[in-house]
Simulated scan of single mutants.
Amino acid sequence: MIYQLYPQVAHPYRYELNKDMHIAAAHFIPHEAAGSCANVHGHTYVVNVTVAGDELDESGFLVNFQMLKKLIHGKLDHTLLNDHTDWFDRHDPNRFPTTEVVARTIYETIQRYLDTLPHKPKCLQVFVRETPTSYVIYRPKVGER
């Protein structure tokens, strides 16, 4: 296995956790300006999630890796992203299943989960590689974490 290094986020937290996932999924961008991406096609996405915090939970984890995988891989792997209408929308460009929106929506999903934990870890960034030569990084603006 080849290990990927990702751009890092400077932060003041004691712990930083990174979880990699491979997600095989199809999508299409419902807009004429998308060119051939308006047709259904698939990718093996490489996703990396960075979570940080100062405190560990009662199990000694910042976050359980399995929970992160369940939240994202468990939902998206081997699906048509456009079918996830709770995440994506064919009429709102801010919710088309582009790589940018996929990264932001993964962030929002993970942060919602983290907000339920008593020790309040934070998702610092989500990296989504769509092809070997194209990727997106989503980071919340300062003050949103």
Rank of each mutant, 00 (worst) to 15 (best):
T131A: 10
Y3D: 09
C37Y: 01
V128P: 03
H119G: 11
T98D: 08
I106F: 06
V63C: 08
D86K: 05
V126R: 02
N18F: 04
N18C: 10
T131H: 14
D54R: 05
L56I: 08
R112Y: 00
V51G: 05
Q125N: 11
V47M: 03
Y113M: 07
I23P: 05
T79H: 05
F28Q: 15
L68H: 12
N94P: 01
P132V: 06
T133S: 14
Y13L: 03
V102F: 15
L80I: 04
S134P: 00
N48A: 10
V126Q: 01
R14K: 15
P132C: 07
V47A: 06
F65I: 12
R90C: 06
N48F: 02
I110L: 13
V46E: 12
V40R: 08
D86V: 02
A38K: 09
P97F: 04
Y113V: 04
R90F: 01
D83P: 00
E16K: 07
G35I: 01
T116S: 15
S36I: 03
F61L: 12
Q66Y: 14
V142S: 07
A33Y: 00
G53T: 03
D77S: 09
I106Y: 10
R145C: 01
A103I: 02
P7K: 09
Y6V: 14
H78V: 06
T79L: 08
P93N: 03
D20T: 12
G74F: 11
M1G: 14
